[in-house]
C-alpha cells in the first residue's frame, strides 16, 4: 500500500513536472518568437557597464542557451568544463567587438536559434563531447550573443563599458551556472542527471519550435 502510494506520488510528481515543462516551454516559445523580438537597451542608471551587464539577462533567447551550455559542460566533467569559463567570455567580447565593424549577418537569427536547439539536444542526450566540440559550441554561442548585444548599443552608449559589462556578466553567469551544475551532479542520487537532461529537452523543444516558427515566418514573408 505504501509502495503503491509512493508510486502514485512519484507519478503525480512526474506529471506535474511534465505539465510545468509544457507550460514553461510554451511560455518560452512566445518569449523567443522572432516577431516579438525587439531591441531593449536597459537603462540601469549605474552607467553603461551595468547596462551591458543587465542587457543579456533581459532576454530568454540568450540566458537559456547559456544555462544549457553550462549544464552541457558540467556533463563533461570539471577538467573539460573549465575551458568554457575561458572561451565563452572571450567569444562574447569578440562578438561584441565584431558588431562595431561588421553589418548584421543575415543568418544570425537562424544560427542563434539553431544553437539553442543543438545545445538543448546535446544536454538532453547527455552527449560526451570532445573538448574541441565543446569549445566550438561555446565560442559560436559567445560570438553570436556578443554580436547581438553589441548591436543593441545606441550612439550615446559608451561602447567599451557596455561590452565589458556584457563580457563580465557572461563570465559570471556561465561560471556560476557551471559551478552549480557540477555541484548538483556531484550529489547523491541517479535522478540528478535525469533532471538536468529533462531541462535540456525543454530547451531543445523551445529551440526547435522557435526555429520552425522563424522558418515559417520567413517562408510566408
Amino acid at each position: 500500500m505504501t509502495r503503491l502510494a509512493r508510486r502514485a506520488g512519484i507519478a503525480g510528481a512526474v506529471a506535474l513536472v511534465r505539465r510545468a515543462g509544457s507550460v514553461g516551454a510554451l511560455a518560452l516559445v512566445f518569449a523567443l518568437t522572432p516577431g516579438l523580438a525587439h531591441a531593449h537597451l536597459v537603462d540601469t542608471r549605474l552607467g553603461d557597464f551595468y547596462s551591458g551587464a543587465l542587457h543579456p539577462l533581459t532576454d530568454f533567447e540568450q540566458v537559456l542557451p547559456w544555462l544549457a551550455l553550462a549544464v552541457l559542460a558540467a556533463f563533461q566533467g570539471p577538467r573539460t568544463a573549465r575551458w568554457v569559463v575561458l572561451a565563452f567570455p572571450l567569444a562574447l567580447a569578440a562578438g561584441g567587438a565584431l558588431s562595431l565593424v561588421l553589418p548584421p549577418p543575415p543568418f544570425a537569427p537562424v544560427a542563434g536559434v539553431t544553437l539553442v536547439a543543438l545545445t538543448g539536444l546535446a544536454v538532453a542526450a547527455q552527449l560526451r563531447l570532445p573538448l574541441a566540440a565543446l569549445l566550438v559550441l561555446a565560442v559560436g554561442l559567445g560570438l553570436l550573443d556578443g554580436y547581438q548585444n553589441g548591436a543593441a548599443m545606441v550612439a550615446t552608449t559608451d561602447r567599451f563599458l557596455f561590452l565589458s559589462g556584457v563580457t563580465v556578466i557572461g563570465y559570471a553567469f556561465v561560471t556560476l551556472a557551471l559551478g552549480c551544475a557540477i555541484a548538483f551532479l556531484a550529489g547523491v542520487g541517479g535522478w540528478r542527471p535525469i533532471a538536468l537532461r529533462a531541462a535540456g529537452s525543454w530547451v531543445a523543444a523551445v529551440g526547435i519550435m522557435v526555429l520552425g516558427l522563424h522558418l515559417v515566418s520567413r517562408g510566408v514573408g
Partner: peptide
Amino acid sequence: MAVLALMWAHRQAQA
C-alpha cells in the same frame, strides 16, 4: 556575495 559565489564556482569547476 557575488565575489564569494564566483570563488565557490571556480573551486567547483577546478578553474
